[in-house]
Design a protein around this nucleic acid. Structure first.
Lengths: 338, 338
DNA sequence: CTGAAAGCGCTTACAG
DNA sequence: CTGAAAGCGCTTACAG
């Protein structure tokens, strides 16, 4: 695209040195405001566009924070991205998003981010191994959201799974569930499924209840259908709102003796899908804003951009769940959508 | 994060010159394979990580393609991002995603991308003015998806709105609609709403049918509810699948005399939401794969990376719609979800 | 097949 | 308050 105009061009046109242009453009207080004005006007007029790669190379800081998302289909990630965007923009930095699910597909985007010398990396439910994550943590400040900590220098922020499981199960028991079914995606896709399943199993066991796990895959949730025909309606826990939609349609279509589902359902993430009238899903809400702010702060502290002194080992923060109760867990009220 | 190891470090350790390391790392054929092996091994062992910003500065090409998405909530954007990702990866380039809806919120992410010297910019339904877009087109190869062309050097790829409107309206007429309602988001948010509305209005007018437009905002779609109580069920056109969900719940909840909605509904984008059993939306499908491939090719041609010679003025490509017919437009069959 | 050298556009001490 | 200069890590003709 033609030749880009550089600070040198601006300096020449404004009759000052190259260094001064840089200072003026970056708002250094040690530039006379009259000079600054003139330089800015010249830059504007010449159509000067800053070159962030050159600045990054020279200054040693890119002002970039990288985000890896498994996909862009789950509205929960929209929450997360927006919240991070805000925390990042507030620091005058830029958020770069890349997408990759699974270990293989995550590697390339992450490497690209590292090559751009991001000052921090936020990974949401990454499918990378603990060992790989620790390795990343040595190369760059890393904070995980929604995945348990691999150790090393990697910080993590996640839901208190134990408390969430407790809240979910006790709610379902109150709704009349005598046994439980956990519907989760392929654990390869969401590494957190294993941990969540264990927390739920522990909470169920404590009450002497049985918990079965079924996987939601491309063929739907045949396992759930089988569970529903057994005696006694189970309480159903969906790993997230997306999975919950699949579970919900199985529940509704297998409703024994009535137009409404009989099995109470609870899911996680509390996205807009959960609050939609036709689903009205009881769902575990996470304080995404806080999580995002902490994540950005953590990586900035590790990069030396903020805070004082060295950050030592991994920080593992856990946030309290809030159960947003809706109709899916009180089938008596009957779902709408009919 | 400690000091990163550079090519100079690798050169020293391997006992070769700095230039040779660069050539070896980039797979230049003019490096003896034995030498290359040794250099690669040394780099690996030292934990060398390429610095893309330095490479970009030195070579004059970043290998980056920027994508601006309005949000990450609409599953259609997941399609688009994945398809672009594929086309970009195939060229060994990297896709950088940023998010911003509205003119104001789009500016910063776009500037950040430009500062990183992306070799091309793909903007999905951008809310920027024609003038701004033409300006961008002077600074960088730009391709718009789903928005009409601003002229200048900006290429565009979009649905053939005339053909789509024709297909949608004739389908609704066959489904018994005697008048029409178009449900769209705030045109500030999706600049394509205006154009789509006009295409629909033209198609309706040609049949002597009336088309009213109602806006879907935070308060829901009160306008649609009013329309539905008027005499004669209208055919409803939703601007996209997200809007369609809102429209659908209004239609279902206002069903006069039966459990199923009476107004046939058609939407655009054909995302997974449309194909879900409980919605079963008739929706206009777009060939996203082709669109993405073309978009990447267009910007690469303009950047001089591909093709021969200069690309002149704007190329405006239009793609044929395909109507995926489902139950929402044949209310007689009755929606599920009961 | 290999090396020495210039330069990409910027930032930043260091002198004045 | 301003300027001259070194250097960030890499790529790439240009010689050998």
């Amino acid at each position: 695209m033609g030749q880009m105009v550089t600070q040198a061009d601006v300096a020449r046109a404004a009759g000052v040195s190259r260094g001064l242009v840089s200072l003026a453009l970056n708002g250094s207080p040690s530039v006379a405001s009259s000079t600054r004005e003139r330089i800015l006007a010249t830059a504007e007029q010449l159509g000067y566009r800053p070159n962030a790669t050159a600045a990054s190379l020279a200054s040693g800081r890119s002002g970039l924070i990288g985000l890896l998302l498994p996909d862009l289909r789950n509205p929960f990630f929209d929450f997360v991205a927006h919240a991070l965007q805000e925390a990042v923009a507030q620091r005058g930095m830029t958020l770069l998003v890349t997408v990759g699910a699974g270990a293989r597909a995550s590697r390339r985007p992450v490497d690209a981010l590292l090559a751009l010398r991001v000052e921090g990396l936020v990974l949401v439910s990454p499918a990378l191994s603990d060992e790989e994550l620790r390795g990343l943590g040595e190369a760059c400040p890393v904070c995980l959201i929604g995945r348990c900590g691999p150790g090393g220098r990697v910080d993590t922020i996640r839901l208190d799974e134990r408390a969430a499981a407790e809240a979910v199960i006790s709610h379902l028991v109150r709704a009349g569930a005598g046994r439980l079914v956990y519907v989760c995606p392929d654990p390869e896709e969401d590494p957190n499924a294993t941990e969540r399943g264990q927390a739920l199993a522990a909470a169920a066991r404590q009450r002497g209840l049985r918990l079965d796990t079924v996987v939601d895959d491309v063929s739907g949730v045949p396992g759930l259908r089988e569970q529903l025909v057994l005696a006694g309606a189970p309480g159903v826990v969906a790993h997230n709102d997306i999975v919950a939609l699949d579970a919900l349609s199985v529940i509704r279509s297998s409703g024994r003796g009535g137009p409404s589902g009989v099995a109470p359902l609870v899911s996680y993430d509390d996205t807009y899908l959960a609050s939609r009238e036709e689903f009205s899903l009881t769902s575990v809400e996470q304080p995404v804003g806080t999580m995002a702010r902490d994540a950005v702060r953590f990586v900035c502290e590790r990069s030396g951009r903020e805070g004082d002194g060295e950050v030592g080992g991994a920080r593992n923060v856990t946030v309290a769940p809030v159960l947003a109760v809706r109709r899916s867990s009180s089938p008596g009220a009957g779902p709408s959508g009919a």
